[in-house]
Amino acid sequence: MSVENWAAFAAASAILLMIPGPTVLLVVSYALGQGWRTALPMALGVALGDFTAMTLSMLGVGALLAASAAVFTTLKIVGAAYLVYLGIKLFRAGGTLRAEPRADSVPSLKMIAHAWLVTALNPKSITFFVAFLPQFLDRHSPFMTQMVVFEATFLALAFLNALGYAVAASRARAVVRNERAIRIFNRTGGTLLVGAGIATVAMRGS
């Protein structure tokens, strides 16, 4: 595997990760509601979720999802239901910063689990990796070596991306105190999460 090939993969991954999606929205909502203490747990949860999706893809689950309508539909429903649940909870937070309990009363493991579920329980993530990774593989280089390098690179970028969003949002939390602005954020974020859940169910497997 050439350095150029790795650099192209890293650049493409960084761009894709920076595009806000359900995972980033969850990270931002936690950080706005509970401050900088959520940054590390959420970033770890995101990295673990991506690790799960990438590993399952490497083991061939991506091909199984593409071939089995039942498995694909089951994962879509589970992932979509969780996104809708989080969206409704955020929407109902109203004009308060806390869509969840105070940070010091929420175990870090619970925050990690939330981020992991949103990131990993999305069949689109697995099928995405199946379609994305092969573009950068060199058939003349050892497969497992390339997979380890690519996975480590992507997970490091995913961790840093989530951490950056969380830190930025936690700093904005000290500035944004307007109840109306928070209500708009919560309702917009909640609506987007519910929409993401519905879109997951509506997505066709191929």
Rank of each mutant, 00 (worst) to 15 (best):
A131H: 06
M18H: 12
A8T: 13
G195D: 10
Q135D: 09
G95L: 07
A181Q: 09
F128H: 04
A131P: 01
L44K: 05
T73A: 15
A70L: 14
F128G: 08
G87L: 03
T38K: 06
V176G: 03
A81P: 09
V148S: 07
V175I: 13
L48E: 06
F154K: 01
G94E: 13
P107H: 13
P101H: 07
V175Q: 13
V28G: 07
T74L: 15
A66I: 09
T191I: 10
L97W: 14
L44Y: 04
A120F: 05
M58G: 10
P142E: 09
L17D: 05
W116I: 11
A103L: 12
G62I: 03
I77T: 13
V78I: 15
V61H: 07
A115P: 09
A115D: 07
L83T: 01
G87N: 06
E151A: 15
R98D: 14
L86M: 14
F159C: 04
A162E: 08
F91H: 13
S68M: 11
E151S: 15
N186W: 01
K124T: 08
T73Y: 05
T74A: 15
L25W: 02
T38I: 09
A196I: 00
G164P: 06
K89A: 05
V167I: 13
L117Q: 04
T145E: 10
L133H: 02
A10S: 09
R183K: 10
L44A: 14
D138E: 11
A8N: 14
H114L: 12
V84Q: 01
W36S: 12
A99N: 11
F154W: 11
R171W: 12
A47C: 11
S125A: 14
S170I: 06
H114P: 04
L25V: 12
F129C: 06
V78G: 03
R102H: 12
F91E: 05
H140V: 08
G94I: 05
V46G: 00
A93P: 04
N186H: 05
A81N: 05
L155T: 01
Y165A: 10
M144W: 08
T96G: 11
T188R: 02
L117P: 03
T127R: 04
A199R: 05
L44E: 04
S170R: 06
S141M: 12
L121T: 01
T145Y: 15
G35M: 08
K124E: 08
T55L: 08
A115S: 15
P101R: 10
G205E: 02
S29Y: 04
G60N: 06
S141E: 12
S68I: 13
V130D: 11
A12S: 11
S125Q: 13
A174T: 15
P134W: 10
A70K: 11
V84L: 01
T73I: 13
Y82L: 05
D104G: 07
I184K: 03
T38D: 07
L86R: 04
A120D: 10
I198V: 13
A115K: 05
T73V: 11
V148F: 00
I15W: 13
L56H: 09
S206I: 15
W6E: 01
S206K: 11
L25P: 00
L56D: 01
S170P: 10
V84F: 03
K76G: 15
A12H: 02
W6D: 00
A103C: 06
F129H: 07
P107Q: 08
L90D: 04
S2E: 09
R139Q: 10
V130T: 13
F185G: 02
A70P: 05
A93H: 09
G190I: 01
G79F: 01
A169S: 11
